[in-house]
């Protein structure tokens, strides 16, 4: 157990860095932001990262908590419990409407 914990702590230390955030469609317009670098000190889930964003930008809350909002981690559709690490690219966007 102790060894496991140590490894996790080391991981946390080495995993500090930036996550590149992207916003598309109506969300981009509402946030008035298309991309943003977010400093993280340890891996966190997409929903935890959203909470971080809301604490930093409280006026974004209604848009980031939109029920239909989708997320893609490193260009793969991802649910809110997926872990985000430093160096990752995370995009948020509304349901798609192409074609």
């Amino acid at each position: 157990m102790a060894v496991g914990n140590e490894i996790n702590q080391n991981d946390a230390v080495s995993s500090a860095g930036k996550v590149e955030l992207l916003f598309f469609g109506q969300l981009k317009e509402r946030l008035k932001c298309s991309k943003l670098s977010l400093e993280i000190t340890q891996p966190l889930t997409i929903s935890e990262l959203k909470l971080r964003l809301v604490s930093q930008y409280p006026h974004w809350q209604p848009w980031l908590e939109e029920r239909e909002l989708l997320a893609a981690l490193n260009q793969t559709m991802s649910s809110s419990d997926v872990i985000v690490k430093a160096g990752d690219e995370l995009a948020f966007f509304p349901p798609v409407t192409g074609g």
Binding site: F24, G25, Q26, E29, E68, A72, F93, P94, P95, V96, T97, G98, G99
Partner: peptide
């Protein structure tokens, strides 16, 4: 496919809903 569409009218515009 990750596309988003906005409709432009004469005096306004509107993001298309899924």
């Amino acid at each position: 496919a990750t596309f988003w569409k906005k409709e432009h009218f004469k005096n306004s515009s509107n993001w298309v809903e899924f």
